[in-house]
Every structure is written in C-alpha cells, then in structure tokens.
C-alpha cells in the first residue's frame, strides 16, 4: 500500500472547514497514495463537494493540514492548481459560446496547445457538435465537454463529482479513457451510486455530517457501513 519513502498524492490531517457556525468538514484524516482512487460516500450535505472544492483550491481549509502532490494548501495553491482537474456539478462552460470556444478559452488560461482541444473533442465524439452553443446541447453532451475541460491540462489528480451523471453507457465508454482508473491518475470521486463507486475505488471514505465515519478498503465496506452512512 503506502510506500514508506513515497509521499501520498493527497494527505489530509484533521481537515476542518466551516460555513458560518456549521462545520461542513470536521477533523477528516485520510491519505490517498499516488495512482489510486478514493471514493467518497455520504448523503447530500455530508461534505463530499466541500472536500473536492478544498482539494481543487476553490475553498480554503479552516483547520488541519492539507497537502496535494506534496504541496501544502492553501499556501501553495497556485502550484497545485495546474496539476488538479475538477469535474463538479456545474460544467463551468459558458452557455452562449460553443464547446470549442469554451475549451479554447480554458486552454489559453492553462497554457495548453490548441491541438489538444481538437484531440479531446474527437476523443469524446463531439466533433460534429463542437461549434454549437452549449445551451443547445443535451446534458450528456455538456458533461462530455466538461470532462474535456477537466482533463485539458493533463492533471495528475482528478477530482470527480458524480462524473457519470447524465451519461448513457455509450458516452461512459467514451470518457472512460480520460477519467478512468487505467492511466495512472490519482482520483477522488463521489457518486450517487455507492456500489459502482466502491467497485471503482482502492479506498473508501464514508462521510456523515462532515465527520469521517470510516476509511476502509473497498472489500471491507458492507451493507452495515452503508446503512450507517445513508440510514
């Protein structure tokens, strides 16, 4: 599992984040070794999205230690930013621009060559619709473009909030090479379907009211643990 001399890709020690008086995350500790997948489970409002947003440098931690790829957050956020990719609930695409224009805009912000945009558009099968405004696309197509956006700068860490939402099985096939477990990414993912997430994971973090209910190997997460989380 964790190599003694190799640093984990993501390391949380006592991470706490408050919104006003409410603690969205309370003293969460977990380590994610490089190249593995952490599945985060929990009900709505348990703190899953907050955790992803902290790792993506969009939210500042209020307590505890967070490091991503050996860099402390929030101090070294500018370094982390170029190496993580976030696929959240929102596609982060302008509705009145085309998919291609949106991706080229992000490519400029991330200093990515324009050719990569074209390759990604082909890879997710959006070649024919890439010049339509995003508002005219189906949710599945928007999600495919959002995946392209998230992996545009070839991040080492992928933060995936329900990545397969709105996608039919054929589309899942298309995005799998980009965000699947096969190509050495360290991944943190959440899913509305705990079964699928556990299957996809090397480690499972159960969150309940912002606290870590358990951190277990996928094989050790049974019906009882899930009842604990969702019951």
């Amino acid at each position: 599992m964790v190599d003694q001399d190799q640093q984990p890709a993501i390391e949380l020690r006592g991470l706490t984040r408050r919104f006003g008086e409410r603690a969205a995350l309370n003293n969460v500790t977990v380590q994610v070794p490089t190249g593995t997948t952490l599945a985060v489970l929990g009900r709505n409002g348990a703190g899953k999205s907050t955790l992803l947003r902290i790792l993506a440098t969009l939210l500042r931690p209020h307590g505890g230690e967070v490091s991503v790829l050996g860099e402390r957050l929030p101090q070294r956020a500018h370094v982390v930013r170029s190496r993580v990719g976030l696929l959240g609930h929102e596609p982060l695409l302008y509705r009145d621009l085309s998919g291609r224009e949106n991706l080229h805009y992000h490519a400029q912000l991330h200093c990515v060559a324009p050719e990569r945009v074209e390759r990604l558009i082909e890879a997710v099968g959006m070649g024919k619709r890439a010049d339509d405004p995003v508002r005219a696309l189906s949710r599945g197509m928007v999600q495919r473009l959002a995946v392209c956006r998230a992996v545009l700068h070839e991040p080492a860490v992928l933060l995936l909030d329900e990545p397969r939402a709105n996608l039919d099985p054929a589309a899942v096939e298309l995005i799998e090479p980009l965000i699947g477990s096969g190509n050495g990414h360290t991944r943190v993912l959440t899913s509305h379907d705990p079964g699928a997430a556990i299957e996809d994971a090397d480690l499972v973090l159960g969150l309940r009211d912002g606290k870590a209910a358990f951190v277990r190997q996928p094989g050790e997460v049974g019906a009882q643990q899930l009842r604990e989380l969702y019951g």
């Binding site: 969009l58 930013r81 929102e90 982060l92 695409l93 302008y94 992000h106 912000l109």
Partner: peptide, 17 residues
C-alpha cells in the same frame, strides 16, 4: 453575471493565473 451564473468564477479560479 455570466461568471456567477455559468461557473465562470470557478473556471477562472481553477486556472494557474
């Protein structure tokens, strides 16, 4: 308004700029 309603703020903040 577009940044707020269509995720432009997040998109910008995710970039190393």
């Amino acid at each position: 308004v577009a940044e707020r309603e269509q995720g432009g703020f997040d998109a910008f903040l995710l970039a190393p700029v």
